[in-house]
Design a protein around this nucleic acid. Structure first.
Lengths: 211, 211
DNA sequence: ACCTGAACACCGTTCAAGT
DNA sequence: ACCTGAACACCGTTCAAGT
């Protein structure tokens, strides 16, 4: 053992500027196992191998760490939705909306703790974390764009598209929330199917009659 | 001052058996102002004027207190829905479903903290509080009954009514959740109107065509 | 039976100090 | 700049004791 070797456990490279990343990553990892209400800042720091006090160099408080985690979650979700949509023809209006819904419920089911941070008490309520609104706005924008395209293509009814977007958002979020809290029990391999079945009830209402 | 007078502040009658009630009531009261994540058992006990340790006589832990609070919330919600429905003709299918949805979103908006306890992490997940399932089942039963009646009356499409019930449940819960977290901003006096407008998008899909 | 004082093992956050 | 030891004011929960 070299004399120069520190007695502490091996350190990652956050000494050179990415402790922030390490903390966010560790938090997301741990949220796969426990809920945000149980997860402590001290435990995250322990996992990273750092004194809990070090976190305050990068986040003014625990909420700020969670805000970074939420932001990253929205970004991932948006990226997934974009990827899934890119595989479908622009004219396939209903299937595109289903794909959007499926990506959302899948995220909630696969990353329950992470989803809870994203959908729980609104972290930017006080205006402290305006960055969050960017990917959130993008996500809602994707939904709106699909609806507008559907109307333009003559596949969807064009009356009160704003309400359609809100209604669909609420429904998808509702399914995700009920599945994530296991109030609505659905096996992992049936999730897409169930999402489609419920979403189709809504799409039936949004579709243009006798098109 | 009488010598017999205890120096402590005046006590309520929980000495005679309703400290349990006092704790539940105080928790609900306090949830009007703060979220359940912030509310401490010790603070509730303080409000009631009792040592926090006394709560453990009536609840095995904090979760048990919250379970009682959630149960009471569901009961109140069910009572409200029943009352609202009793004012409408059985044949007024769509309006009855709207009334059900409005009662739900109103509860969430008027009792945000209480609603969060009810809709947050599922308290009976571990099976510790099966009592909760009773009013929850009643609430879902009311929804199912309305849908079935609508089908019987020829007003609603009868295919996959189970999915219709789940879809409507998810949508109403989604609206309530988004309004409560203020992700969907809606003024108090517009809440019923907005609820109707979004719910109607779904009802349009559930309605029987060319009835 | 019902209630509490003292204590335990945690927590988020701050201060003052180390390199 | 980046990190930490010691401390503060909290928390939920338990034990042993009081009436």
């Amino acid at each position: 053992v070299s004399v120069r070797r520190a007695p502490a456990p091996p350190r990652a490279s956050y000494h050179h500027g990415d402790l922030r990343r390490a903390l966010v990553d560790a938090t997301i990892e741990m949220l796969a196992e426990v809920g945000p209400d149980v997860l402590s800042l001290r435990e995250v720091a322990r996992r990273v191998g750092v004194d809990h006090r070090a976190a305050y160099r990068h986040f003014t408080d625990k909420e700020a760490l969670f805000a970074a985690v939420a932001e990253e979650g929205y970004r991932n979700l948006v990226a997934t939705v974009r990827r899934d949509l890119s595989r479908l023809a622009p004219s396939d209006v209903l299937e595109r909306l289903r794909a959007l819904a499926r990506a959302y419920t899948r995220f909630a089911a696969e990353h329950p703790g992470h989803y809870r941070v994203m959908s729980g008490p609104r972290l930017n309520e006080s205006g402290r974390f305006p960055e969050i609104e960017i990917p959130v706005g993008e996500a809602f924008g994707l939904l709106q764009a699909e609806l507008q395209a559907g109307v333009a293509l003559g596949a969807l009814d064009g009356t009160d598209v704003e309400a359609s977007a809100l209604a669909l958002w609420a429904q998808v979020h509702g399914i995700a929330s009920l599945v994530q809290t296991r109030r609505m029990r659905v096996a992992k391999n049936k999730l897409s199917e169930v999402t489609d079945r419920l979403i189709d009830k809504m799409l039936h209402g949004l579709a243009r009659r006798h098109a």
